[in-house]
Computed example of a mutant assay.
Amino acid sequence: MTIDTPSAEMRLLLRTLAEFVREELLPLERPFLYHDFDTLMPILEDKRRLAQSLGLWLPQISAEHGGMGLSLYEHGLVSEVLGRTPLGHYALNCQAPDAGNMEVLIEHGTPEQKERFLLPLLAGEVRSCFSMTEPENAGSNPTRLSTAAVKDGDAYVITGHKWFTTGAEGAAFAIVMAVTDPAAARHQRASMIIVPTDTPGFHIVENTSVMGERGRGWASHAEIRYDDCRVPQSNRLGAEGMGFVIAQQRLGPGRIHHCMRWIGICERAFDLMCRQAVLREVAPGRALAEMGPVQNWVAESRAEIDAARLLVLRAAQRIDAEGAYAARDDIALIKFHVAGVLQAVLDRAIQVHGALGMTDETPLAFWYRHERAARIYDGPDEVHKWSVAKRILGRYAL
């Protein structure tokens, strides 16, 4: 499969987005990295309104629902540009987990659910969170859940314990994956249910500290207790028992978004690394860029980033053309491969920066802390390697 060349219109959009990131968002990184959200958020909300006025809003959503109507391949290219700053995706209202929740609501929501929950989300008036991972169960196996939703009249009563629920602080509602039929087949036990965060029994225990950093708002991960949360059965998304199916539909395209965002991070880290190598002297008149190991890191990083991009764009095109199931090998390959490239490039960039790389004067340390999770969330590397290897070897079986 050859990789499509972006259209002239798409190239213009990418240049426009690159300018928006450079001029409007990069100057806001310092208050973000130093957790000055009181200063950051009013300005960032202004930037969101500016993006919306410029038509740079909801790139992953169809025009029918107020988005830019990009294909998965095109949105991948956009994600790379936005990934160059931690603020990029939020500025265009395509950040996780809201982007995935929008897609789920569009695909499976009732007219009433769309009116109440989807429309404010699309408009950027509220945020949401996605509540699946549990501390007591392996996150790599979403069929093993303890959180239960028990029917009581026309309601579900939800009880359970979740964590790493991204963006729960300040969210208007959660989409919760809970067991609705423990006797069903393991892929049909759970359902997805919308729980407004003002529901009695919804308790944020705390924002979880990630490698020494406790985020805020949309940039946080929360531990949550559901203590007899009572919501109408009409809050269920799709048919009962479809939770696993919906989760898989959500994750396939989402991995393209993540991987291209990681490519954007790699490009920014590469740029910072090269600039530092040229500017920093190790001796009078001798720059870091003249050192053999640094030159090796630059060459290796360039090759790895370019190869990873092609791999992801090929997967995106296959999903667009043939669907996520046909592209399942491609999706598994990019998930672990790009995560590994990301970690390697960030590590080299920090090494070139020396002590500066350990500070929050650049976004490198932030990404190093938070994006180490790239090899864990949405399925750890080992699971993806195992699953794709089994399918490949199965084709050789007699």
Rank of each mutant, 00 (worst) to 15 (best):
S79N: 13
G69H: 08
Q60A: 13
R49H: 12
D46I: 09
H65R: 14
S53E: 13
L82T: 01
K47P: 02
L58A: 05
L40S: 04
Q60V: 04
L77S: 09
E45V: 13
P31V: 11
I43D: 09
L72K: 06
L92D: 07
Y34R: 14
R84N: 03
L58W: 08
L44D: 08
P97E: 02
F32R: 03
N93Y: 02
H65K: 14
P42I: 12
R49G: 01
V81I: 15
P97I: 09
M68Y: 02
E80N: 00
A96D: 08
P59E: 06
Y73W: 15
L54W: 00
L77Q: 03
H35E: 15
D36V: 08
L50V: 09
Q95I: 07
A63E: 15
T39L: 13
L44T: 00
A63K: 15
G66F: 06
G67D: 00
G88R: 03
I43N: 02
L25M: 11
L77R: 10
I61W: 00
L70E: 03
P42K: 13
H89Y: 06
S79A: 15
L87C: 04
D36W: 06
R84T: 14
P86N: 03
G88F: 02
E80R: 13
D98T: 02
V81F: 01
R30Q: 14
G67F: 07
Y73I: 05
E80D: 02
D38M: 05
L26R: 14
P31M: 12
L28D: 09
L56D: 05
E64A: 15
G55K: 02
L70N: 05
L28P: 00
G55I: 10
T39E: 14
H75C: 12
Y90V: 04
H65G: 02
W57S: 10
Q95G: 01
L70H: 04
L44W: 03
P31Q: 12
H89G: 08
L72W: 05
P97T: 07
Y34F: 14
W57F: 12
L87P: 04
L25W: 00
G55R: 07
A51V: 04
Q95H: 06
R49S: 13
P31D: 10
E80T: 10
E80W: 05
Q95N: 12
R48P: 05
F32T: 02
P31E: 10
S79L: 06
D38G: 11
D36Q: 15
L82K: 07
H35P: 03
L33C: 11
L87F: 01
L25N: 00
A51R: 04
T85E: 01
N93G: 01
V81C: 05
